[in-house]
Amino acid sequence: MLQVQGLQVSFTVYTQGLRQRRLTVITDLDVTVRAGEVVAIVGASGSGKSLLAHAILGILPHNAELGGSISFQGKPLTQARKEALRGRAIALIPQTVAALDPLMPVGEQVRLAALRGGVPAAGAREVVAASFARYGLAPEAARLHPFQVSGGMARRVLVSTAVVGQARLLIADEPTPGLHPEVVTETLGHLRELADGGKAVLMITHDIEAALRVADTVAVFYAGTTVEQAPARDFAGGGEALRHPYTRALWRALPSQGFVPLPGAQPAPDALPPGCLFADRCPLVTAACRVARPPARELRGGTVRCIHA
C-alpha cells in the first residue's frame, strides 16, 4: 500500500542575516505498510517520526526539500497526488483535540470529513450517525463543541473523522500519550480493527509498549534514519531476537524490562557523524562503524542498518 524508500528531508534555514544553509533532518528513512497491517514507527522525539507523516501528506513547509521515493498503491506519490488523496484515500488521525475546529460541533466536523472522503451529500448524515454509533458516541454528542467532550470522547471523534470516508491508509500520530489506560486500550483496539478490515495503518508513537499491543511490524527511527524494521514478536525476553543495538537499548530501557538508561543523546541534525548515526552511544562500536553509514539489509525477516548485526 505504502512504500517509503531512502526518504530524505532537508530544510533551507537562515543562519545569520541572509546566509542560508541546508539542514538535512531525515536521511535514509524506509518503511513499508501493507493492507491489513499495523506498522508502528517508534523512536525518540526528533527522530523524524512526525516529519514522515508530513511528507506523506504533503504538508511540509515550503523551505523543505524531499529526496528518495514514496509510493502509494504502486504509483509514486507526487505533491499533486498527495493533495488529491489526503483526506480521501489517505487520512490522518491527529494527536489532539486541538486538531478539531473549536467553533464547530463535532458531528458537523465528522460530516465534512465524510463529504471530503467521498460520501454522497444525501447520505452523509446517516453515515455520520452510523460512525458515531460504531464508536460509542451518543447521537446527542454530535451537537457538542470540542471543548465539551472529554479526552476519551475526543479520541473517538478524531478516529471517526479519519475513517468515515473511504480511506485506505490511516496515519495515527501519537494516539496514546496522557490517556487513561482504558482509553488507550480502546484506541489501540480501533486501529487493530481498521487493519483487520483491510486498511493499512501507520501508527507513530514513542510508546513501544502501546505499539507492541497492536502492531505487526515495528520500524525504529533514530536521528532521521530507520535503524531497524522488526516483527513485533521479536520484542521479547532480553531482546535477543532484535537486530539493532538501539532497538535493544530501547527495549531494555522500559520500566517493565530493565529500566536501563542509555547514555548520551541523539546527534543533532547539524552535527551528524559521517558513519553510523548511533556510533557514539553504541556498545558494539568499532572503527569500521565510523567510516560510512551502514546500508539497510535484510536479516531474519526484518531489516537492519548495522554492520555487526
Binding site: V42, G43, A44, S45, S47, P177, G178, H206, I208, Y246, A249, L250, W251, A253, L254, P255, F259, V260, P261, L262, P263
Partner: peptide, 16 residues
C-alpha cells in the same frame, strides 16, 4: 507525567 511524552531510553536516562 514528566516523561509521558518521551521514548523509553530518554525516560530511563532522565529518571536515573
Amino acid at each position: 507525567e514528566m516523561t509521558a511524552m518521551l521514548d523509553a531510553a530518554t525516560q530511563a536516562q532522565i529518571w536515573h
